[in-house]
Design a protein around this nucleic acid. Structure first.
Lengths: 262, 262
DNA sequence: TAGTGGTCTAGACCACTCC
DNA sequence: GAGTGGTCTAGACCACTAC
């Protein structure tokens, strides 16, 4: 490190720290190796623990480190490329690897999803958003929950919203929940003609339930992939999948196995 | 708020705060409206400023708030959808809107980019990574810098790496830098047949130069889009574009104008 | 010059994992 | 029970913006 007092535009300590640690990771540590604990690192660099943590947080955000409470901080492996390309033109659950349907519920979706599904188009929809009683069932959809794993590691949790009108042949046998019904919904959905999909990616933070599935703390950064499945001129289903931002690189094609981080 | 002491699994204060503020944003604030300052908000909620800041940081990450030093915290507009679909099968700079080429340099690219460009394939490449002298020119590439704006707002900064072999007809007139040459490189590149592209998206943090262009602080979260342009069986160019994660939603298709955050 | 968000400190206690 | 990262506090000062 040495003295940096000559800098006319002093960069923040945590930023400098991040650079120093990052270089150390490249040259002095192996993937999976455990770093000294935060109190020791802070003392070694002569900063407060909070400042040290700010640097570690950024490195974790960039996928360089992995921190687990009660365990320690380890050097993360390169991000895994996860294919989310839309080229295959397939319904969810048909011929895909790595996804597992774990549950299904029947309830009103979040407002943003309802908009994509073109529910709630009546004029007074916004006025009775909280009156989820009498007319709630009309706006309810099957919600299939799926998990995606790659190389033994959970990478994504998804909620797939399917209006009852998209699965007219579904036999519920009285039950509207459970993994068996989840697979039933996927099976029925696949009977529709699939005209196309469109997809969006944005940054979000993990909800409590997603965080638990992904083995992260609530609020952890995630890449939210929203997919709209189009059939016969309308939106037949909407998927909202959250991918671990620290360990995943979403690929749209076959860029392969190299990581380009900033 | 009320007392939450009955919770058997007490959630962190900042998490609860985030929820409370988020709901207040929905019901009591307009887009662009300025919030009370951090010291006042912290006092109002009865927490330390650092705790309040942790909640605000998450909300900013999710695109709900915008904070500017010396100014204040404002309610952010919904994220803008930015099309990054690969369907168009075009070279960069041909028929695209919103991108502006601002500069061009000639230098060795980062190691990860060199790998994608299939430079440095000789056996001792890793041994002389720091000996950028004699043989450095052989590994240098034209680096075109471009900026993307949407609705008057800078949303992305890109570095496009183009090996000299991809632009054999380029006339440098002695100069290997400057915006004029940048446009020349793009023009020459467009002469090649474009076989395809593949693309990857991952989370990163803004480098100092990108942060400046994007009007953010260094380290701000960004979505890094890496594109490989394929021509005649090889990688003719590589683009690394960083998009503001707080204000952008990357679209691969035409999902349109609705935001689905977590 | 006043007010804002950004950085930093030196503590404290808690939740979790592992032995 | 020992050790780890996660949360929280109550201050301080700095960099930037706008008046």
């Amino acid at each position: 490190m040495g003295t940096t007092q000559l800098e006319s535009v002093p960069e923040p300590k945590y930023w400098h720290l991040k650079t120093v640690i990052s270089e150390a990771l490249d040259s002095e540590f192996e993937v999976g190796e455990i770093l000294p604990n935060e109190r020791e690192l802070a003392a070694r660099f002569g900063v407060a623990r909070a400042t040290l943590r700010q640097a570690l947080e950024q490195l974790e955000l960039e996928g360089r480190l992995q921190r687990r409470r009660g365990v320690g901080t380890t050097v993360a492996p390169p991000r895994v490329g996860v294919d989310v390309s839309t080229a295959q033109h397939r319904w969810p659950g048909t011929g895909e690897e790595n996804w597992e349907a774990v549950d299904c519920t029947f309830a009103a979706p979040p407002a943003a999803v309802a908009r994509l599904l073109e529910l709630d188009t009546d004029a007074d929809a916004d006025a009775d958003a909280d009156a989820a009683g009498s007319r709630g069932a009309a706006r309810s959809v099957h919600t299939v929950r799926r998990l995606r794993a790659t190389r033994g590691q959970s990478v994504a949790a998804e909620q797939l919203y399917v209006p009852a009108s998209s699965v007219p042949g579904l036999v519920t046998s009285g039950d509207t929940t459970g993994p068996v019904l989840a697979r039933g919904v996927l099976r029925e959905l696949a009977l529709l003609p699939l005209d196309g999909q469109d997809r969006a990616v944005e940054l979000g933070s993990a909800r409590a339930d997603d965080a638990k599935e992904l083995d992260r703390l609530p609020g952890a950064p995630v890449l939210v992939v929203t997919t709209r499945y189009l059939s016969e001129g309308r939106t037949a289903a909407v998927s909202v999948a959250t991918y671990r931002a620290d360990t995943c690189r979403l690929t749209f094609g076959d860029v392969g196995d190299l990581q380009i981080a900033s």
